[in-house]
């Protein structure tokens, strides 16, 4: 797909999609969205990037092997469930930490990290599949 228009536009779209995916993930707790959808959008962005430029380029722009994202995401979700051990609560108990940073009111919670983990897992695994399909899996 070496058309000029697509190659020029694609990075822009990809950037928008990535930002949008993070946005969707973060607000998922209150509005439609969440880690799954965010991750899927991010993976779609990666697909567009790889089609518009090349797999190698898309892989380079990630810096890290996509499966590392996936592993890290699952690990993060697991950790966010384990935190409740310290609180003498069962696995995956939601713990909330309300931070007042000056004007901003930030709510940090284990479900948030869990959702971020989902995002990373979905993005990583699907990204790996999409890139791998073009290169026989050799995407190191």
């Amino acid at each position: 797909m070496n058309t000029l228009i697509f190659r020029t536009i694609a990075p822009l779209i990809v950037a928008v999609m990535v930002v949008f995916s993070i946005f969707i993930t973060l607000r998922g707790h209150n509005e439609p969205g969440g880690g799954f959808i965010g991750g899927l959008i991010a993976a779609a962005a990666l697909a567009i990037l790889s089609i518009a430029t090349s797999v190698q380029q898309a892989r380079r722009s990630l810096h890290i092997h996509p499966l590392v994202f996936a592993g890290f995401g699952v690990f993060m979700a697991g950790v966010s469930g384990m935190v409740s051990m310290a609180a003498h609560a069962p696995f995956l108990t939601g713990l909330w930490l309300e931070l007042e940073l000056g004007e901003a009111h930030v709510a940090l919670s284990t479900p948030l990290f869990f959702d971020l983990g989902v995002y990373l897992a979905v993005f990583g695994a699907l990204g790996a599949v999409i890139l791998g399909l073009e290169t026989d899996g050799e995407i190191d």
Partner: peptide, 23 residues
């Protein structure tokens, strides 16, 4: 109006299928 968000993302991503077919 939350449905509009879906419309937005569909607009963002929907063309991907077309791109893939074109490819």
């Amino acid at each position: 109006f939350l449905y509009l968000d879906i419309a937005v993302s569909l607009a963002l991503v929907g063309f991907l299928a077309t791109v893939a077919f074109a490819r």
